[in-house]
């Protein structure tokens, strides 16, 4: 006839499930956490603009990888006309050597797992 008890139990379980992330963030206490990657560089300007780098650095790195590995070309001309050597370790990480406080912060934040370090080795710095 009426199954109100079962239906309402099901409804409550469903509501708990879809709101689960809210409780999870309260439990972990990291709801207000924002990654703030440390920029420890002496240079004032990255290869491209900050907005471009934030959203599309993976495109740039892929372009560099294809160019270096497949075509052997190592010179990158930035949109402002400056020339850079295409190299993750020698160009990017010369400034951003602090992987744990730079790369990893955002990548961990949005659950991105990379395979850079299956080929490259992390440069040592004293």
């Amino acid at each position: 006839m009426y199954d109100a008890d079962k239906i309402i139990t099901g409804l409550i379980i469903f509501l708990c499930l879809i709101t689960f992330p809210i409780y999870y963030n309260i439990a972990t206490g990291k709801a207000a956490y924002r990654p703030e990657p440390k920029i420890v560089t002496e240079e004032k300007q990255c290869v491209e603009s900050k907005g471009y780098m934030r959203a599309k650095h993976m495109d740039l790195l892929e372009e560099w990888r294809e160019s270096v590995v497949r075509e052997g070309k190592r010179v990158y001309v930035a949109s402002d006309g400056k020339q850079y050597t295409m190299s993750l370790v020698d160009t990017c990480m010369r400034c951003h050597w602090n992987k744990a406080e730079f790369c990893d912060l955002c990548h961990n934040y949005v659950g991105i797992r990379l395979n850079c370090w299956s080929c490259h080795t992390l440069p040592k710095r004293d």
């Binding site: 934030r54 495109d59 949005v110």
Partner: peptide
């Protein structure tokens, strides 16, 4: 591509009601 760290900031702000 968008800056997905910023997207997550937006999403986290919304679901934590801040």
């Amino acid at each position: 591509k968008v800056d997905i760290a910023a997207v997550k900031e937006l999403a986290m702000g919304v679901i934590s009601f801040r």
